[in-house]
Design a protein around this nucleic acid. Structure first.
Length: 431
DNA sequence: TCTGGGGTCCTAGGACCC
DNA sequence: TCTGGGGTCCTAGGACCC
């Protein structure tokens, strides 16, 4: 893996440490060095942990109510999630990192891949990125570099876990013996794409660490698992199978769903929820200039309440022609709900899934559709878009969404939307 | 009392066709 | 008595990711 040849690719993975917690700390330095968690919707589960919390052994995804005593004992600060803030910080981070290479793949809210030019000292470039993120945004990041995406992910893991790397680790400049020694110490479950299930099976086959997996026979593992595992093995060997996706592929589905703050029994209330989800889904559909060919609607009781009667049902509702018309979509889910709703259950979650998405611009005409009606619907939707743009996205509802929304989520400890809402900007004291 | 939400890809198996 | 077989399409479910 010594970087003797310029043909070896330099792929960097930059990833913010404890992203949500770090975003909160930027605007509230009082949270620095304190144990902090950020909770999911409804303040249900832990979705981000500061290092102090990780040190206490608290796991990702742990239900918050189970941690109350421990939290009290250690003074853990719990924040409701504040997605507008994180999304905005993410955008700033990606823009800044984009200056380091024309080849950037934004992989998730807090990480991106960059293809770097080998003529520079790549490790130094990584250190510059790290400093840049700290100086401009106040975000701590880890940087991993290697010849493939899977190896870069691992290098990033090493950069964060081993203090000697100080957050920047480049596999491409390591001697192969050192690298293999390192990989032998890493559990196979740390490999990108190896989940808990596969990790158990790999261990049972005697492939417990990353080096063992790297040296395994690709064909055999492909047959035993799937093509995905085959690719992972090749990537670990330094053979690139996963291309850098610099252009975001179009969405294939848009989902909008929520657990309820309190159980819902009545059909009318479910209608409220489902119509609200549909409005949110359609907003994203229209933002991305897409149309949906079908909608899937689902409702379910709480699977954790095992003693309660359980019911879960979904229905796929095809549209005669693809549409982004909120009113039409609202009508169709409302009628779909009457088909799957059963009285007598405590519903806990519902959602809609817009599928068979296609580009609104490339929309084909339909022999039976009425062009005048389509034009009218388009004009109405444009008006709604404009009103919401001007007065806020929740200004207009479809009739039936309800006003009080008793089922709406709980979000007890949300921080202000520092960067995206004028009334919540942080105040800077002069002098 | 209280257990997230939003995605992707792959595979197996059934339906269907010739 | 003999009781096809191969290709394709679709869907549900599994696994994984952040």
């Amino acid at each position: 893996m010594v970087n003797s040849s310029s043909r070896i690719k330099n792929i960097a993975l930059i990833d913010a440490n404890n992203f949500y917690v770090s975003c909160e700390r930027v605007f509230n330095p009082g949270l620095l060095k304190k144990p902090v968690v950020v909770l999911s919707n409804n303040d249900g589960c832990v979705v981000a942990r500061s290092n102090e919390v990780k040190a206490l052994g608290i796991k990702m995804g742990e239900p918050w109510f189970k941690l109350r005593t421990l939290a009290q004992k250690h003074g853990i600060i719990a924040l409701s999630s504040n997605y507008p803030l994180y999304a905005d910080m993410s955008q700033r981070m990606m823009t800044l990192l984009g200056h380091f290479s024309p080849f950037q793949e934004v992989y998730s809210i807090d990480e991106c891949f960059l293809l770097l030019d080998s003529q520079y000292d790549i490790t130094h470039v990584g250190q510059t990125m790290q400093k840049n993120m700290a100086d401009c945004l106040g975000l701590p990041v880890g940087v991993g570099m290697a010849a493939t995406k899977t190896l870069a992910k691992l290098a990033n893991h090493v950069a964060k876990k081993r203090p000697m790397y100080a957050g920047v680790c480049n596999f491409n400049t390591m001697h192969v013996d050192d690298l293999e020694h390192l990989l032998a110490e890493i559990d196979v479950s740390e490999v990108w794409g190896v989940g808990a299930r596969s990790a158990d099976q790999l261990r049972a086959m005697g492939l417990a660490n990353v080096l063992a997996l790297r040296q395994a026979d690709e064909c055999q593992l492909r047959r035993r698992f799937s093509v995905v595992m085959g690719r992972i093995v090749l990537e670990l060997k330094g053979i690139s199978c996963l291309a850098l996706e610099t252009i975001m592929p179009p969405r294939k589905q848009i989902q909008s769903s929520r657990s309820f703050g309190t159980p819902v029994y009545e059909q009318d209330e479910l209608v409220e929820a489902v119509l609200t989800f549909m409005r949110r889904g359609v907003r994203r559909l229209r933002q991305q200039k897409l149309m949906a060919g079908a909608v899937h609607l689902f409702i379910q009781t709480n699977p954790f309440r095992e003693r309660d009667p359980q019911y879960r049902q979904g229905i796929t509702l095809p549209l005669p022609i693809p549409t982004a018309d909120e009113l039409q979509l609202a009508r169709i889910v409302r009628s779909g709900l009457t088909k799957i709703y059963r009285p007598g259950y405590a519903y806990h979650k519902a959602g809609i899934l817009l599928t068979e998405l296609e580009n609104a611009a490339g929309q084909q005409g339909d022999l039976f559709s009425d062009p005048a009606a389509r034009q009218k619907s388009g004009a109405l939707m444009d008006t709604l878009d404009a009103l919401r743009q001007r007065f806020g996205r929740d200004i207009i509802h479809v009739a039936g969404e309800g006003v009080c929304q008793r089922w709406a989520i709980k979000s007890a400890n949300r921080s202000p939307r520092y960067t995206t809402n004028w009334t919540e900007l942080p105040v800077v004291r002069a002098g």
